[in-house]
């Protein structure tokens, strides 16, 4: 895509059609969202360092393109299930960053009233059925959502986002098979960030692409550049159209990379600094998308540069909101266990 740091003309030509069809406002919003996700994650790490949050967190810096490309390919009313590295998915879904930040720091105004925290942010009103702390935990749930859509005869689809690690859980296989035999409107989006905690995909799989597992379930499987939001967008859009036609599920593998450790306890002994730098310097999703949009004339250099500042302001406001929010009252501790 890049040669000597310059975007190649054929790349621009390849994307010309999709850039035309999406239009500048849509594309600018995508880039802005990528900046906002990164700013959220950077602030999350900072707040952790300051002791404002406890527990752990799983940052998605470097993976912003997958979140933004995927969510933007779906429609209002569609469903999202995702997993523990889910801040970006939730923001890209359009959930309120203030309530996300409040949840992250455990406040009553958070999406889950401070009961869920970083790993369990859900925005049920927008059909964001929540992040899951169990690797592949949401994958079989997608079968039920798909069945429900089918029985209710709506045109919705369910997208479940999970990591490379989840593809080695038994639940993944049960789920893909069930969705396949019943032709359920489910999009399985495997965000392959190269490591399941410390286990590299090269050691956890003997296949080059996780998407080839789709063959075993007789469903489409594609691997896309997960650091290219338009590649992810196009793949998810195609899978969504297929699902809405009643043709069943798809498996999309989005190859990307996480810049930060798995969680807060990670010393990253399993990879080299050079490897991380190579991804950050050569394949950064924000850098690439920004270059594409400026080269294509969709955004000006000034606009692109201003998006980072805008993102930081959005996050400043979210932190102000969460700071001003009350903590949950201990008297409410027993609420919400039973309906």
């Amino acid at each position: 895509m890049f040669a000597n740091g310059q975007l190649q003309p054929e790349v621009i030509r390849r994307y010309h059609e999709v850039i035309e069809s999406l239009g500048p406002e849509f594309l600018k919003a995508m880039l802005q969202d990528m900046h906002t996700i990164r700013a959220f994650e950077e602030r999350a790490e900072q707040l952790y360092g300051l002791g404002k949050v406890h527990g752990t967190m799983h940052l998605s810096i470097g993976q912003e393109a997958t979140a933004v490309g995927a969510s933007n390919a779906l429609q209002d009313g569609d469903y999202l299930l995702n997993h523990h590295r889910g801040h970006g998915h939730c923001l890209a879904w359009g959930s309120d960053v203030n309530r996300m930040m409040a949840e992250f720091v455990g406040k009553e105004t958070g999406y889950c009233r401070g009961r869920g925290g970083s790993m369990h942010i859900a925005d049920v009103d927008s059909n964001n059925l929540g992040a899951n702390g169990i690797v592949a935990g949401g994958v079989p749930i997608a079968v039920g959502v798909g069945l429900s859509i089918k029985m209710r005869k709506t045109q919705q689809v369910c997208m479940v986002i999970f990591g490379d690690g989840a593809a080695n859980e038994g639940a993944f296989h049960e789920s893909l098979n069930m969705a396949s035999i019943w032709k359920l409107p489910v999009i399985y989006l495997c965000e392959n960030n190269q490591y399941a905690m410390s286990m590299p995909v090269q050691k956890a799989f003997t296949i080059e692409n996780i998407s080839t597992r789709a063959t075993a379930y007789n469903i489409p499987g594609v691997t896309v550049d997960g650091n290219d939001p338009l590649a992810v967008y196009l793949a998810v859009q195609e899978a969504a159209e297929r699902a809405r036609r009643g043709d069943g599920p798809s498996l999309i593998e989005s190859k990307t990379y996480r810049y930060k450790g798995h969680s807060k306890s990670d010393r990253q002994a399993y990879r080299t600094r050079d490897e991380v730098n190579e991804w950050m310097e050569q394949r950064d999703p924000i850098m690439r998308f920004s270059a594409l949009l400026t080269t294509a004339g969709v955004v000006s250099e000034d606009e692109a540069n201003g998006m980072r500042d805008q993102a930081i302001k959005i996050i400043d406001d979210a932190v102000a909101f969460s700071d001003a929010s009350p903590a949950p009252d201990v008297s409410s501790l027993l609420e919400g266990v039973y309906a």
Partner: peptide, 10 residues
């Protein structure tokens, strides 16, 4: 899930 989501799902 109900509890984790702050009582907003059943």
């Amino acid at each position: 899930v109900r509890f984790m989501f702050g009582g907003k799902a059943s």
